[in-house]
Design a protein around this nucleic acid. Structure first.
Length: 271
DNA sequence: CAGAATACCTGCGGGC
DNA sequence: TGCCCGCAGGTATTCT
């Protein structure tokens, strides 16, 4: 499900419901996510209040006074708020119930997500400490990207999807940003000029901002925390459009595998 | 070190 | 209808 815009959309949806809320109960139906969820989560969170929320890459951070709950949605995770507890469905793994009876439900069919507790500053956590820059921050610059592209043969699409370089850029937005930049996804990174990097950094920022504005991309089942889909799928130029004509030049959009991920591109617009 | 392959898991659509 | 295959928004870990 989620790349940065979907995680950001989720965060923005949760904030007004959960800021300063006190946890009354935690129901753990299944703890087998990518890493096991602490069986103590209920005791850890009981009667504790959420101080604030933030996001680092695709990780959601719920800050408590005594530690941080780190949540990653993996490929198929979602977090939704309910005012009355709905019937439990197959992949509803965790409920966090608050003092005002609002309920936060984590649902994740493929269980690639994670719910982890840390008492330490979250940015020191092993999963977060090696993350690269935030794509929407000022320090994601052409020069920054260019330095990483030097001497590397790796396809540029795989490089911009590497969270140790820049966070939050997944398969959809990497595909779209490269189309908008007119760069073929398989281009060896070291062939990019500083000018290319300039364009690519600009398009990544633009695509991500647009997608956040549209509430993210709903392909099949992404919903924000209030149960609404994202509308960016209507804006997609090449992702999922292989064998259809390019909107710009009408050449048939092609697809290839890069790092086992399908990568759509227009052979005319992207060289 | 870079880069490729593998692993985790369920659901869905297409071909037969 | 059912079975098998490939594919799906991610990324840590292991291999060469």
């Amino acid at each position: 499900m989620p790349e940065l815009p979907e995680v950001e959309t989720t965060l923005r949806g949760l904030k007004p419901h959960l800021e300063n809320q006190t946890v009354r109960d935690v129901i753990l139906r299944c703890d087998k996510l990518r890493w096991p969820i602490s069986k103590n989560l209920k005791a850890i969170l009981h009667k504790k209040s959420i101080q604030s929320f933030s996001r680092r890459g695709k990780y959601l951070l719920f800050h408590f006074k005594h530690g941080t709950l780190i949540i990653h949605l993996g490929m198929s995770g979602k977090l939704q708020i309910f005012t009355a507890a709905p019937a439990v469905k197959k992949h509803d793994h965790v409920d966090i119930i608050f003092a005002d009876k609002k309920l936060l439900r984590y649902t994740d069919p493929r269980r690639f997500g994670a719910i982890l507790w840390t008492q330490n500053p979250p940015h020191q956590h092993p999963l977060l400490c090696h993350l690269g820059v935030e794509p929407l921050e000022k320090n994601f610059t052409a020069k920054y990207l260019f330095d990483y592209t030097q001497k590397r043969n790796l396809a540029i699409k795989l490089l911009i999807m590497n969270a140790n370089i820049v966070v939050g850029v997944g398969n959809i937005y990497a595909t779209e940003a490269l189309f908008m930049a007119g760069i073929h996804p398989a281009t060896p990174a070291k062939l990019l000029t500083l000018q290319h990097c300039q364009t690519l950094v600009r398009t990544i920022k633009k695509i991500l901002k647009q997608a956040i504005q549209q509430g993210g991309t709903t392909l099949k089942d992404f919903m924000n925390s209030d149960g609404k889909p994202g509308y960016f799928s209507q804006e997609l130029q090449v992702y999922g459009r292989q064998s259809q004509p390019c909107f710009v030049c009408e050449t048939i959009v092609q697809s290839m595998q890069l790092g086992k991920r399908s990568s759509a591109f227009c052979p005319t617009c992207q060289s």
